[in-house]
Design a protein around this nucleic acid. Structure first.
Lengths: 209, 209, 209, 209
DNA sequence: CATGAATGAGTCTTCATTCAT
DNA sequence: AATGAATGAAGACTCATTCAT
């Protein structure tokens, strides 16, 4: 689980290429060439292309679960504040690791990499369970509605962010923001996305207008 | 654009396999074997694997735009009714063509198949434009809010449906519906998804509680 | 089981090379180069290097069992005549297919190619059973001794021929026959080997001096 | 010619693996792993895989020639007794070093390792010469026949033992001795093999019935 | 003295595509 | 119009060996 510099270099190169071309669309030679290392080194360090993918997953996923869990336990926050923080946390994570996120989408689409698919599912399951608990808490406190479909709610958050991330260029074109520097655009997009999802969640979670 | 029986047979086999294993994860020999045709026939009919993918796209996409456009022009419907119909239409289309939808997701994820990516984007652009017009109409009529981010709204619809479709099994597990026959489950899921998105859209479009 | 010309060409090339360098010591590229065909053709025709080996086995082994069986059923021959014919038959077969014989020795030595090893064993088993029957018949007729270890007897025949075949050069050197043309030498060797083994067998089978 | 403990450990591991999988079927990494040493150590100690094989040969062959020679010079034994001792010596050596024997068979089969093949031949040559002398002595003393093909005789001994060793399992099956513990079976097999070959040799060497 | 890190050459196999028929 | 035969290029991976430490 702890990789040396050269391993991390390979993993990060693989991350970029897998995101750009897909797992099957990327050859180990591609990765080796871009990373500036010998082809044999990938097998040497990771055993196989598949295992390299798993290493990438291990490196990137690591702390997700625990961060969500600690968030939930914070008693100084109201249920809605917690939900809003969950949203921002998710947006941040996806935006910061766009490549990795694209790869995970790809994993979900194809049935390949079963080991990773399973691991990714486990992350989703535990996250959803924690969120469900959080919502139950809000319901107990009377601030959330009675009937809430947690999975669909999560799907909306995850799906909206994914979709937005994948079609950034289109968002830019459609809203005539092509002049804006990318950095600024991303900040803007993040803010809007955050507000958008929070609005949606408020509507399905609370009784307020 | 008009394919003979054998061509359609090949395209539909390709659709299933591309959805299951991804474009790069599927070999033309796989397709030929499953479709029960000669390997050379794929090159013969479509020129290349890439072109076969484009043919699949042409066959499946065809009528989307026109259906949305006619929907919009129907003066007997209120703006909100139109939006709701748009939602149901989208859910139906995705659910009916799950395989194709998965493939399109894959196309968006990887940068491969630029021709198709462009075509898919065109569909999204024109659909969004039509929807934007529809919303403007609603705003003119005073039933919709002033400030509406159409693209994010569309992303929510598309993203929620995609995400839900991709993780059906998880939805089933989490809601303890494993005993339900698949057909019944899909009907249930569709109804819930429809209500869910309509609720979301109502919240961001109208001023009603 | 019936191969076309090109397949036979490949099989025979493989036979020579496997015999010269061993199975693992021969690359498919070697075979393809020597046979003057494309490397891919070996996988194309046989599926794999392993399967090529099996094809070689099928091609060469084919009729062994049946020939021995028909020999045994010939009522015009005395038991000892049958044994002698068996010896000559074996010597002829090994000498004619020296390469194949070397390969089979290699298969027995290493535990690789389990499928072929099993098939080869089956040939040995059924041959031994037939010979055992033949010997029982000789015993019933009173021309053979009571106590005969059929397996050791067969091992002597097979082992002596193998050993002689593998060390032909040494035989030649030791007996100062280096001047003899190879063809003539082989005829001589065969004759001597035949007499040698027949003498041995007579000693363990019969009571004659 | 004198190896330290670690070298012997490597050599003996190589012996086992070469016997099991053949020279080309065994990688230096396999050897290193099983021997519990570093991969580089094999090149470091022996220079190459090939040279390791030669070291194995040197370690195992060493004393063969001398033992046969001293046997021959023992004047207290009759020629036939000497031959019989030669047989038992050979059986013992092969049975005790089955692995090494298998490897030597493999070396004879393939043309690889020319250095070893030559060395192995030298052993055979000198042994045969010594035996030939011994037989000449027996002929002089009038106890052996005039015309004896020493090489074929040696081939019978070597070949029968090899063949029997390689197909132990078959011998066991065919003679319904599967229940017997392996140790006991080997003792039995050795005794029978000894008697078998002595009988054969007596028949070709002497005039007795 | 001994070894972990590294690699170029090589392994077998699969690929999409072509072409003569 | 349709296809069996064929292939060059590329795929992932393993090899024995080297070298700085």
């Amino acid at each position: 689980m702890d990789f040396n510099d050269k391993q991390i270099q390979i993993i990060e190169t693989a991350e970029t290429l897998f995101a750009e071309r897909g797992f099957d669309g990327t050859s180990v030679r591609d990765i080796a060439d871009v990373a500036g290392v010998n082809v044999a080194m990938i097998s040497y360090y990771f055993g196989s292309k598949e295992k390299l993918m798993e290493a990438l997953f291990d490196l990137r996923v690591g702390s997700v679960k625990s961060r969500v869990e600690t968030l939930i336990k914070d008693d100084s926050l109201s249920p809605l504040e917690k939900v809003n923080m969950l949203i921002d946390e998710h947006i941040d994570r996806v935006m910061q690791k766009q490549c990795f996120h694209k790869i995970m989408l790809g994993v979900q689409v194809t049935n390949k990499n079963p080991a990773i698919l399973k691991a990714a599912n486990n992350v989703k399951i535990s996250t959803t369970e924690v969120v469900a608990e959080m919502i139950k808490d809000g319901q107990k406190k009377g601030v959330f509605k009675k009937k809430i479909d947690v999975v669909l709610m999560m799907n909306t958050m995850i799906g909206t962010v994914s979709q937005t991330m994948m079609s950034q260029l289109f968002y830019r074109e459609f809203n005539n923001q092509e002049g804006l520097p990318n950095e600024e655009f991303l900040v803007l997009l993040k803010r809007r996305l955050s507000i958008h999802i929070k609005t949606l969640f408020k509507a399905i979670l609370t009784n307020e207008a």
